[in-house]
């Protein structure tokens, strides 16, 4: 296994031109301002790992991907992809990575998809036998057979994205950098894309997936890194993150005189509801089974259900916490 990506104390600052004053003075005068995009970002990824990279719009996700791809140079800090500086060794790096930006395509507009594929294979110097093998895999996983002979401009958004994903597979990249690959894609398209990513992960490709789509994360990634305002605020396993949030337990007692207050005191947990029907908000520290057992000892239970926390809720609450619970930028879409 070795390390696929090592990022150390990465800082990236953009310069933005701001117009000053009103017309016509603004035609001539402007000021440069520096906008930090990433600050003190450090993380590493082992080969074969699948990491979700989440954060509100403008958090710095795309910037990170562009730096890993060697397109942008970090302002400070060091970045290594398979041991090399991606900006300095851009061309070498590009053989190791496959990059997909949602909404942007490498396919040639006027040509059938298959011709673009052959071209891309030629650009990367892929031997014929490898190309055939990978093409077959892409066609299989992404169900491309009907798209191959159509010009890219005639494809729908979802089809284009599938064709695009197929194209980054052709040179056999060891690391996939994906920037919102399911953006605007319908449900069946998403399902195919997720199958595709899961398969790549299985054959040992390292996946770095920036997304707003929590379904993508649940189906593909083991680990989650969250950025907010250019800083990493969370880095951990998805399963641990979910567990740390605890389960909600819905319970109905036979005796509707049971009081929420006393229940809460007895369990040491937050409780809502009344008249014998309650929701107990578990903590990640205690397994739900033990809470259920304790509930049974507190009275005759007629009905009980345990609801696992979902990622949308978990990430939504973290965003809310980060933005002080008032901004709307923590909104997640499913």
């Amino acid at each position: 296994m070795g390390e696929a990506v090592v990022v150390n104390n990465l800082r990236k600052v953009y310069r933005v031109r701001k117009l000053v004053g009103k017309w016509p003075a603004d035609l001539l005068s402007f000021r440069w301002t520096e906008v930090p995009a990433l600050q003190q970002v450090s993380f590493s990824m082992n080969s074969g790992e699948a990491v979700a990279y989440v954060g509100p719009n403008g958090a710095g996700k795309s910037t990170t991907i562009k730096i890993l791809a060697g397109v942008l140079r970090p302002t400070e800090g060091s970045v290594r992809v398979f041991g090399h500086d991606p900006f300095r060794y851009r061309i070498h790096n590009s053989h190791n990575i496959g990059v997909v930006f949602g909404q942007r395509t490498q396919l040639w507009w006027e040509l059938p998809v298959i011709d673009s594929y052959r071209m891309i294979a030629k650009i990367y110097g892929v031997p014929r036998s490898d190309l055939d093998k990978r093409l077959e895999m892409a066609v299989d996983l992404l169900e491309l057979e009907k798209l191959l002979h159509r010009p890219a401009r005639t494809l729908s958004l979802g089809e284009k994205m599938r064709a695009e994903l197929g194209s980054v597979l052709l040179h056999g990249p060891r690391l996939l950098l994906l920037d919102e690959p399911t953006l605007g894609v319908d449900l069946s398209g998403k399902r195919r894309i997720r199958q595709f990513l899961a398969h790549l992960k299985k054959i040992g490709v390292t996946v770095f997936l920036a997304t707003h789509d929590l379904g993508d994360i649940e189906s593909t990634c083991d680990r989650l890194i969250m950025v907010h305002q250019g800083r990493i605020v969370l880095d951990g396993m998805v399963s641990e993150l979910l567990a740390s949030f605890g389960h909600d337990i819905e319970v109905r007692f036979a005796d509707d005189r049971v009081e929420g207050r006393s229940l809460s005191d007895a369990l040491g947990l937050e409780v809502s509801g009344a008249n014998g029907r309650f929701v107990i908000h578990g903590k990640g520290t205690e397994p739900p089974v033990s809470v259920v057992e304790r509930l049974f000892s507190l009275g005759k239970v007629v009905d009980i259900s345990v609801k696992a926390p979902d990622l949308e809720f978990v990430i939504g609450s973290i965003y809310d916490r980060l933005s002080g619970g008032q901004s709307s930028c923590g909104h997640t879409s499913g």
Binding site: A69, G70, I91, I97, V99, R104
Partner: peptide, 13 residues
């Protein structure tokens, strides 16, 4: 348009 990003991901000058 930022499309240059995609081109710079290719192993070409």
């Amino acid at each position: 348009s930022g499309e240059i990003t995609k081109d710079l991901c290719l192993p070409v000058d």
